[in-house]
Design a binder for these strands. Structure first.
Lengths: 352, 352
DNA sequence: TCTCGCCGAGTCAACGTTGTCTCAACGTTG
DNA sequence: CAACGTTGAGACAACGTTGACTCGGCGAGA
């Protein structure tokens, strides 16, 4: 490899304030003042410095700056979600990014895949980079490992689920009430045999939704039958299998409440495969794209993801602006979207 | 506010190596050695340092470390996508994150919303934070503003579209060939009147897909009729309107090639509204969730997003590992997925 | 005319870490 | 036993920037 060629494309190290200062014939500090917009600099000198900086292609080093400056802010926050590729996480990330952008703050993202060990690793990695704050959709149930970081001044807001063993802000959807609404809606259409298909009960949001399901049935004096209750995890395949099983019972349900996105989709695939999509009612928790274009449209309890994300981000920035009030949890309401599948009436003889 | 209360929750500033060293009774440099895994440290001292660090809740400051260390690496890369919330960008982000994670590298994301000014601002913001490299889905057509950064050693890979006025690596899908395949597939089902609905022609990928459309028709000696060619932009509403218009022509198309995600969805909504979903054939560019569950299923040309993202990330890291070979563009093939809508035969008298 | 205060710019040290150098202690070898 | 290499750890400076302080010059008021 020729020296010349290497020289051409090689790393001519990035110019620093020192070089800009030398070219402009001023002190380094003056360059610093110019780039920080300090008003007590002679306009002629400002122009000279700017010109020198442009000529050299100078860009300030925020890394060095944040190390030196008093507040130590990096203008960067960390965001830990379940999976950057899933629609819920993606929408959440985008709303947080929007709020951050207004303040010149960038977002570092990490996917946890429901893995508590990964949550810890990535949270540490973010802290090692001295992010100003964290927005976390926790994978584990114990965030006590963050106590010392919290005490060291790292602000954090939890989303979708509250933090465990840690006193911190959180923004959550009203899972329980959403489930109650869903089940009441099905009860209102005359259904008395309503199956529950949802994520593992160990996941807090799933537990809350299941709780709402049970509560609504209880209030309506409808028996809760364990044979049509399945905590299947969050996979379409498992949901398909579970749906086939409950539908092949001697006394199958006339309606389904599917409490998680992939479970909803799995169930509706299974109903279609069985030709039951116009017979068995279904309400899902979480909206999804094209739910309205299916036939019938899929009725869902929709979370207000934008509201959740925006609220969380604003909360975080309030903390960063010095809000020291006690930690609190904000609950964002859900809303029922009627599209057809949830309005299929119970057929056959009424059981009441 | 009482002093005591404020004291309890207030920022006790983060411990540094100095404090760990003091507590462990060693020099700062020794703490540094321990955390960098330098092998020539007495195991007893290692233990003492680790203990002191744990007691204080010490976490290394990567910001300071990257400032001081020779290579200046921050173990962070930047990723600029169209919109973190859309499925394409989200999937891309996730695959890049996966490759980065293996190397202990974190990803900063930014959404450009097809806005070239934003692209520039965000690229600068990333560079100011001294990211090791950039993965960019460019919004503008001119990336020459990055030449000086490239020369300063910031590595960059472009995705989905090549960089303009800049010599840089890129990973793109084979848009032209994908379009050719789509149109040939429709021709194969007997269609001779095939409409094109796509994004604005000023977007390079859209232009390539349109080019493929035209080329395939030309090869088949089928006339290209401007009245059934619409560059509508990327909105469902516009696609719906355009679909309604072309279908209400005296000589409407018997098949649609929709060359962008939202256009595909808009068109299929419109066909459904007109009751034509089983009559008019449709092939879309870009797969989307639930395309298989609709009736008929939607046939698409699917991009291999994982392959694109993975290739781009690996390319970037090869560059970071010192690869100085000339910049190149890697083209990833697309594939046709037959689900029904694209296999609807042309009815009525054959025109040939 | 002298002093006071202010304005504009510079000097110096420090943020938390690591590269380079130095040095003491120890074991080996001819 | 002296010369030597090796091993383990500390001293010092520096990365690029900014906070605290300093200082010269100039206009205003006594």
């Amino acid at each position: 490899m020729t020296q010349g060629e290497a020289g051409l494309r090689s790393t001519r190290s990035r110019p620093t304030m020192r070089e800009v200062a030398a070219l402009a014939g001023v002190a380094i500090k003056t360059v610093s003042r110019v780039f920080n917009g300090v008003p007590t600099v002679d306009p002629a000198i400002v122009a000279r410095v700017r010109e020198a900086a442009d000529k050299l292609g100078y860009r300030p080093n925020l890394t060095a700056s944040s190390l030196r400056r008093g507040d130590g802010r990096t203008a960067t926050i960390g965001m830990l979600v379940e999976d950057a590729a899933n629609p819920f996480s993606a929408a959440l990330t985008r709303t947080v990014e929007n709020v951050a952008r207004e303040r010149g703050v960038l977002v570092l993202v990490g996917s946890l895949d429901e893995n508590p060990a990964r949550e810890r690793e990535l949270a540490q990695a973010l802290i090692d980079r001295r992010v100003d704050g964290l927005v976390i959709v926790p994978a584990g149930r114990d965030q006590s490992y963050l106590i010392s970081e919290q005490r060291s001044g790292t602000r954090m807001v939890f989303v979708d689920r509250e933090a465990g063993l840690l006193d911190a802000d959180a923004v959550v959807s009203d899972n329980r009430q959403g489930a109650v609404t869903a089940v009441n809606h099905l009860l209102g259409a005359g259904h008395r045999r309503i199956a529950y298909l949802g994520d593992r009960a160990s996941i807090p949001t799933a537990a809350q939704r299941f709780d709402g399901y049970r509560h609504a049935l209880e209030v309506a004096h409808v028996e809760c039958d364990d044979r049509i209750i399945r905590h299947v995890g969050s996979s379409e395949e498992a949901a398909i299998a579970a749906t086939e099983q409950v539908m092949s019972l001697p006394d199958p349900p006339t309606a389904l409440f599917t409490s998680q996105n992939l479970v909803t989709i799995g169930a509706l695939r299974a109903l279609r495969a069985l030709g039951l999509q116009d017979t068995v009612a279904q309400v899902g928790f979480d909206d999804f794209p094209l739910a309205d274009i299916l036939n019938p449209g899929v009725s869902v309890i929709a979370q207000d993801i934008e509201q959740v994300g925006k609220t969380a981000a604003e909360m975080l920035f309030r903390r960063l602006d010095g809000d020291e009030s006690p930690a609190r949890t904000i609950t964002v309401p859900t809303r029922l979207i009627e599209r057809g599948s949830g309005e299929i009436p119970a057929k056959g003889p009424r059981h009441d």
